[in-house]
Simulated assay, not measured.
Amino acid sequence: MSEQTAKPKIAISACLMGAEVRFNGGHKESRLCSRTLTEYFDFAPVCPEVAIGLGTPREPIRLIGDPQNPQAVGTVDREINVTQPLADYGQKMAAELNDICGYIFMQQSPSCGLERVKVYHTNGAPVNGGGRGIYAQAFCAQHPDLPVEEAGRLNDPVLRENFITRVLAYSDWQQVLTQGLTRRALIEFHSRYKYLLMANNPLQYKALGKLLGNMALSDPQELGPRYFSELMAALKKCATRGTHSNVLQHISGYLKQAISAEDKEEVQHVIGQYRLGIVPLVVPLTLLKHHFRQHPDPYIAQQVYLQPHPENLSLRNAI
């Protein structure tokens, strides 16, 4: 990421940045977000419950009724019903935060949780499976392609790497739109994302290639949004050791004329060690990058897969 470009912007539940806005007057600071990621992203903190006028501290709210369409009511005073204000605020913020590239929500929150938020029957018994927070539901409905994740899930290294990769892909696409969406821009974008897509979702990689292969008669202004929606859906699937190993093999193929038999053997050995779970992804990637520094290849050099996020975040050291 060049120094000139502004940091991509991520919206976040304010309590995760250490703001004391929770119902009990506390916070749920995520050091990953508040300390580590702030070097690379600008955060826009939001607390919908405080924004709609609920005080701090306050009586907690809970979701009751149909998990697909629950009501947010007071846990003690059932007359308090903030369903509509939270939904309205979600729509308002969806319109205002139109320059973000991702959103990190507080898990289990009746306003902000993305999944498995507790929903109760009117008699107080929990509903199986749970639902989604009212604000989060309203917000995400307006931004179906936006990368969203819950803070708790970011403790998983595979999910963390996947989310940050999607945020930066979203940001990358916004740059393409700013410069103007042409057929050439679409083809070049897809070309750069080839191996990342192949690692995350080999089937969708083929489908997206076909979609662009039939572009001659399509208007890029119409095809672009459809392509991007499908790309973001494809990148949601987490890559595995198997799919990463397959991509590493493909990339190593570009070195076969350039490096010695001994070096080739070492590359194969290290990819095999990664596949078996003996070393993390950063090990075969570092070796491949070393060889490509000595034997540059213009096609490989432009591949997002080799560096989809800032190296200092060390996101591939644990996967």
Rank of each mutant, 00 (worst) to 15 (best):
L208K: 04
Q303G: 08
F228Y: 13
P8C: 02
E150P: 00
G65I: 01
S252L: 08
P67D: 06
I164G: 00
Y195E: 14
V119P: 03
T38L: 04
H269S: 12
Y195C: 14
Q142T: 07
K118P: 13
K7D: 02
E266F: 05
A318G: 01
N81D: 11
L168I: 15
Q294F: 02
L235I: 14
N317S: 12
P157N: 05
P60H: 07
S218H: 10
F163R: 01
R35I: 15
R78Y: 03
L313Y: 03
E222H: 08
G18R: 04
D219I: 04
G124P: 00
V283N: 02
V158A: 13
L315W: 00
Y274R: 03
G90Q: 09
D42N: 11
A301H: 15
A258I: 00
Q179R: 13
Q302E: 13
K7Y: 03
S2A: 11
G102F: 02
Y120E: 09
P308N: 09
G26A: 12
G152Q: 10
A301F: 07
H295Q: 07
A151H: 10
L223D: 00
V282F: 04
V119Q: 04
G18M: 09
L276D: 11
D88W: 02
K28Y: 10
Q221T: 10
Q91G: 14
G26P: 06
L248E: 03
Y305E: 05
V119M: 02
E149Y: 02
G272C: 09
V304E: 02
L217V: 15
C140I: 07
Y193S: 12
P48V: 00
H290G: 01
T56V: 13
G277I: 13
P60W: 06
V76W: 09
A185H: 00
M1L: 06
P67G: 05
G209S: 12
Q303Y: 08
N214A: 13
H143F: 01
A151M: 04
Q142F: 03
I187M: 10
M215D: 07
Q307I: 15
R241E: 02
G133T: 00
H190D: 10
L276H: 14
F105G: 01
G242E: 13
K256R: 14
G102P: 02
K237S: 13
Q84A: 11
A72Q: 09
L223R: 00
S34K: 08
F23M: 09
Y40L: 04
G277Q: 06
L235V: 10
G18W: 06
H269I: 09
L54M: 14
S171D: 15
L197S: 07
V73C: 10
A87V: 07
